[in-house]
């Protein structure tokens, strides 16, 4: 009789312990980045590109990487949006709920979602070799858009699944074509949720390093051409940390803080939009 209550107690402690360990380590991650990064962070770093000998500890900043990340992030998000919005509208409005095609597309989106970004990078590289392209802003943007396409499409799909069926029915009943239902009614209803999905994908894109390593390469220059290599924040962090000089490594911590702050800001904005969305949903 007592044994099962003991077991209950033991597992309660284990579970609370596990949750605490995870919560603490995750707080530790943010804390570490904050405490290591904040002292090294300064304005000069944010508004200048690396000057000669930057990686030996001389003057300069990471503006090249910030701008590069934003450029590549915006570009790939826009591309992924152009592909995934029609795709999910097709899945949710044109196709029936039990359609085999829809099932297959959703399944493959899930599979694509799980492919590591380094593999996308390698794939991008093979395509680049095939068409004779060099590592560049364009190549990086194209590759990254493939990486975030499944992320964006899956979360958009979740949003559209929540749009009440009656809304589609009503629109159709008034004689609207499916195209009009999709782009004029459903998109408007789901707008905040879709925006949240876009922002989530954007944040994921900015944080990704493995896919752009091969395809966008790295440079100390600010981004100025679609066909030239471009720097990105994650790689800037990686390279700065890889140097043996403490002052450069500290800049790496500061860069990590910048990146984390950027991503947290984006995902909090996304959550804010997402919440506004649920307020209008008819349940």
């Amino acid at each position: 009789m007592a044994r099962r209550h003991v077991e209950e107690g033991v597992f309660k402690v284990l579970m609370a312990g596990a949750a605490l360990i995870l919560a603490a380590s995750l707080a530790l991650i943010l804390g570490t980045i904050l405490f290591k990064g904040l002292p090294a962070l300064n304005v000069a770093m944010l508004i200048s590109a690396p000057k000669g000998g930057y990686y030996l500890g001389k003057d300069g900043g990471i503006l090249n990487a910030i701008l590069g990340s934003l450029a590549i992030g915006f570009g790939s998000t826009a591309l992924a949006l152009a592909l995934s919005l029609p795709l999910v509208l097709y899945l949710n409005i044109y196709l029936k709920k039990r359609s085999r095609l829809a099932l297959a597309v959703r399944f493959f989106l899930d599979v694509l979602w799980g492919i590591p970004s380094i593999v996308y990078g390698a794939f991008g590289f093979t395509v680049m070799m095939a068409v004779g392209m060099r590592a560049s802003l364009l190549a990086g943007t194209l590759t990254l858009s493939l990486v975030i396409l499944p992320i964006m499409a899956r979360s958009m799909d979740e949003v559209l699944k929540m749009v009440p069926f009656g809304l589609k029915e009503t629109s159709a009943a008034m004689g609207a074509t499916r195209f009009e239902t999709a782009f004029k009614v459903v998109v408007k209803q789901a707008y905040p949720g879709l925006l949240a999905a876009v922002l989530t994908a954007f944040g994921r894109g900015i944080g990704d390093a493995a896919a752009v390593l091969f395809t966008a390469s790295y440079t100390d220059f600010l981004p100025y051409s679609l066909f030239k290599p471009v720097a990105t924040l994650p790689l800037a962090i990686f390279f700065q940390l890889a140097t043996p000089f403490p002052e450069v490594q500290e800049r790496g911590y500061a860069s990590a803080l910048v990146l984390t702050a950027l991503i947290l800001a984006i995902s909090l904005t996304a959550r804010w939009f997402g919440r506004r969305f649920t307020r209008h949903v008819i349940r």
Partner: peptide
Amino acid sequence: AGISPVVYGVWGVVA
């Protein structure tokens, strides 16, 4: 889930 892998890496190196 959204934090950059590189940031996890930095934490790994530092902590």
